[in-house]
C-alpha cells in the first residue's frame, strides 16, 4: 500500500513580471520506506515537500494520502529555539499541535533517554554540538508520532564529517522508530546511501528523469553502504543522468 500517491503534480510561482514553472507534471508513489528526491539546486524539490505537507495548497494535480496519515517535517537547519531548553524544544511540536498529554510526554522522555539526550534536557541549544542539535530536532519531529518524515536537506548546514555521522545517526533512529521517509537532497551520494528508492528530477521546471530502486546485498547504515560496489554502480548511473 502506498502512503502517498502523487499524480500529475504541477506548480508555478508568480511574480509581477513573470510566471515561473517549478514543477511540471510529475507522478510517483511514496511507499513505506525511504524515498530520496534529488535534482539540481532550485529545481523545486522543496516545493514538493511543502505541497505534500499541506504547507502549500496552491498547485495542480492530485495528492492522495493514506487515511489519517500523520506527517512530520524536518527542515534544512535544526531551527531549535535558543530561548527554550532541550526538553521544551522537544515538546514544542506537541504543544503547538495541542497534543501535549502524559502519554506523549512519556514518549518524548523515552526518546530523549534512548538517544542520549536526557541528561542534557535542561541545557540550551547553544550548549550542544551540531549533531546533538539535529538529534533534538528529530525527536521534536518524532514526538508527534508521524507515520512519515519529510526531510528537507536536513544535513546541509553541517560540515562534512558531522554530516556523515549525523546522517547515520538519523538513519538509525528513524529505522528504529519504524517510520517512512521522504528526503530531499542535492547530494547524490547521500541519497543513494540513505534511500531505498531515488527519484531523479530534471532542472527547472522539474520533471522526473528516472526512478531507481536501490538494492544492497547487505543493507547497512549509510556510511557502510557508501563502501559497497553497488553504491559505486548507482552513483555512476545517477551521475550520468544528471550530467546529461
Amino acid at each position: 500500500m502506498n502512503l502517498i500517491k502523487i499524480l500529475n503534480l504541477s506548480k508555478s510561482y508568480y511574480s509581477i513580471n513573470e510566471e515561473t514553472k517549478a514543477i511540471n507534471n510529475i507522478t510517483f508513489d511514496i511507499d513505506n520506506n525511504f524515498t530520496g528526491i534529488i535534482g539540481p539546486s532550485g529545481c523545486g524539490k522543496s516545493s514538493i515537500l511543502n505541497i505534500i505537507s499541506n504547507q502549500d495548497k496552491d498547485y495542480e494535480g492530485k495528492i492522495i494520502k493514506k487515511e489519517n496519515l500523520k506527517i512530520g517535517y524536518m527542515l534544512q537547519e535544526d531551527a531549535l529555539f535558543p530561548w527554550l531548553n532541550i526538553y521544551e524544544n522537544s515538546i514544542l511540536g506537541l504543544k503547538i499541535s495541542k497534543s501535549l498529554n502524559d502519554d506523549n510526554i512519556k514518549y518524548v522522555v523515552h526518546l530523549l533517554k534512548k538517544y542520549g539526550l536526557y541528561e542534557f534536557k535542561d541545557k540550551y541549544p547553544n550548549e550542544l554540538s551540531g549533531g546533538m542539535k539535529q538529534r533534538v530536532a528529530l525527536i521534536r519531529t518524532l514526538a508527534i508520532k508521524p507515520d512519515i518524515l519529510l526531510l528537507d536537506e536536513p544535513f546541509s548546514a553541517l560540515d562534512y564529517q558531522t554530516r556523515l555521522k549525523v546522517c547515520d545517526d538519523v538513519y538509525k533512529i528513524i529505522k528504529e522508530e519504524n517510520k517512512a521517509v521522504v528526503i530531499v537532497t542535492h547530494d547524490v551520494s547521500e541519497a543513494i546511501s540513505f534511500c531505498d528508492k531515488v527519484i531523479v528530477l530534471t532542472k527547472r521546471p522539474a520533471s522526473i528523469k528516472n526512478i531507481y530502486n536501490i538494492n544492497y546485498i547487505n543493507k547497512n547504515t549509510p556510511t557502510q553502504n557508501r563502501k559497497t560496489i553497488e553504491f559505486q554502480k548507482y552513483f555512476d548511473l545517477i551521475w550520468s543522468d544528471i550530467e546529461k
Partner: peptide
C-alpha cells in the same frame, strides 16, 4: 525558518506570535 517550523505543526497566527 522558525516560523515555518511552527507551521509544520499546524500553528495558527497566535501560536506563532507567542511562541516565536
Amino acid at each position: 525558518l522558525k516560523i515555518k517550523l511552527l507551521k509544520t505543526f499546524n500553528a495558527n497566527k497566535k501560536d506563532i506570535l507567542f511562541n516565536c
